[in-house]
Design a protein around this nucleic acid. Structure first.
Lengths: 344, 344
DNA sequence: TTGTACGCGTTATCAG
DNA sequence: CTGATAACGCGTACAA
């Protein structure tokens, strides 16, 4: 077969189908299909002819057709509250990497902390016939739960460990982490522990963290002072405002645990600006393992959370189910770790 | 038609097809199809019957089948160098939002700054028959270019303004931005301007920024001192190292322009650690508009880049092409802006 | 090892 | 406005 097609310049006009490859290789489409998806079931000779034909005519398989025909799917859907929040980035990265290594693709969307939007997105993904779903949120509208149940798709939730998971869960304990950090601060001798978190109304994680803080105070025998607790919107500015509100008057908080987003960083900068010694005047602890927190002056005590690993494991357990290597509900509790640094 | 199906709890067993809806509504599948995708072409009466049937039996359309049948696609593919880098997050957000508002879904992948990986991902996306592609990188393997050309899919590149775009470009001028900032520093009276960027070998943007720096020095009549130029890997640590190498001995750089990633922040923290006054001992300028840079002490001079807008516009021009509202190559040059702050 | 017949679930086309 | 019929491009199931 003369093959000057290497650098060929066919017009983007007509779609090339499997039958074109079949014709060029002198076999049936079925043989082409096999040569491409299970080369071992085809003779050496034929395999080479098919490969040659494929690259000669520049054939690109149509997975839509393949998936429709086999009633399978090689796409997984992911819904996070926000694509802009860098905290979710490592999880996304972990998921994408593991999926791709296994020949799956990832579809992403953000639901902006809204259950209604999440429901719409779940519907959209089910219409795409995703093989599985990863949801960051752990509370869902009844209709969403119902759609998922009826579709029978495997689901992984990974925002926090939940009591009644839809299906599988891969996460860490937000409550446990908040409790551990609070106890850590108490053990360091702080007595008036401020606590700042994101709005609990729309955020399961915040609720759990607040619960952990409260539990730790009880265990440590410290009083719960509502004046020391704040809910703030995300952002650096909120952190700055919070530290002022909680630590301006002498005799208020002697340390503040910022249980969300980048608030601790905003607070630290505000202290620098005002010349407040950290931890001299007020100790600061954060919740997330931004690389940044290890470089600031002073470096900031925080929790190391398994964000990347959550992504990887989520993808893995999902694939295990999709490919039939596992069944039934599953809860994977990944570890967190306290990183003690200069700010406390 | 008796309809007690509202809260029904069918087993996730059998797939519900359009014909099931058709039967329940007493019409043909074609009418169901029309009632769902162009309701105006169907009688009021029939439309309601179909809608009722759909929600009664819990029908979820199969887009794979629809796309296959109509030879269309409602999925767009996006390839970024890294999903973990928060700089890309706003762009992703912008793309996703505009796409979703128009009924399209987004598939994402990261190619880790490798052309070979990008090529593989492009192939994978073409197999999924994406309706369009958004690529952050602007240099591609010959095979990648060829595949794209033959597939005839619309493509938007958005890493930097390119000379010979594959198709459409939505970006800002990395060269122009670097030039503008360098001139800005010269105008402020700095004379020994250090320049730090990411490795130029694998990064188009870095090359362009370096070009801008050089051009600005010429224009300002300042000598180009190779000892003041550094290429560093991404990260806070690299910034810290760079500032020490360029500004430790008195008489070296009097200001440093960090043209990439978070290096400027790492440098600033290192200065704090060493007690170096910024800008007293050394001025610092950054390239990206991390919110953080407006909150540090001192706040950091930087460029405001239209990351979110790049995402939105990329999606828009792509949709315009996909839906036939435009043809031909297109270059959209979005503006950047210098934010002068305390660090210079 | 290879091929044939049929179906995957939808939409385009054209007739009524 | 509605319906019958034929694709869309491929994989499953079986037969050769």
């Amino acid at each position: 077969m003369p093959d000057d097609a290497a650098g060929e310049s066919a017009a983007p006009g007509r779609t090339i189908r499997m039958r074109d490859v079949a014709r060029a290789a002198g076999v049936s489409t079925m043989t082409v299909s096999r040569a491409l998806s299970s080369p071992e079931k085809v003779s050496e000779e034929v395999r080479r002819r098919v490969e040659a034909a494929v690259s000669a005519i520049g054939y690109v398989p149509n997975r839509l057709a393949g998936n429709l025909s086999s009633s399978r799917s090689d796409v997984v859907g992911l819904i996070v509250p926000s694509l802009e929040n860098s905290l979710f980035s490592s999880t996304i990265q972990g998921i994408a990497t593991v999926l791709r290594r296994n020949g799956y693709q990832l579809m992403v969307a953000d639901c902006g902390y809204s259950q209604a939007d999440e429901e719409a997105l779940i519907a959209a993904f089910l219409e795409q016939r995703v093989a599985g779903l990863v949801l960051h949120n752990t509370s869902h509208s009844p209709r969403a739960r119902e759609m998922i149940r009826r579709a029978g798709v495997p689901v992984v939730e990974n925002g926090t460990l939940v009591d009644d998971p839809l299906d599988m869960v891969v996460s860490y304990s937000n409550e446990g982490a908040a409790r551990a950090m609070t106890l850590h601060l108490a053990r360091l001798g702080y007595r008036r522990l401020g606590f700042v978190c994101l709005p609990t109304a729309t955020n399961d994680r915040s609720v759990a963290r607040q619960r952990g803080y409260r539990a730790a105070l009880r265990e440590a025998g410290l009083p719960l002072d509502p004046a020391l607790m704040l809910e703030m919107p995300p952002g650096l500015g909120a952190g700055a405002e919070a530290v002022v509100r909680l630590a301006e008057e002498p005799g208020r908080a002697d340390a503040i645990f910022f249980a969300g987003d980048v608030m601790a960083i905003g607070a630290l900068f505000e202290c620098q600006r005002r010349g407040w010694a950290v931890p001299g005047r007020v100790g600061i602890a954060a919740f997330d393992d931004f690389e940044l927190l290890g470089h600031t002056v002073p470096t900031v005590t925080t929790l190391r959370l398994p964000r990347l690993e959550i992504g990887r494991r989520s993808a893995q357990v999902l694939l295990d189910r999709i490919q039939g290597r596992s069944t039934g509900k599953l809860v994977v509790d990944l570890k967190f770790e306290i990183i003690h640094r200069e700010s406390t």
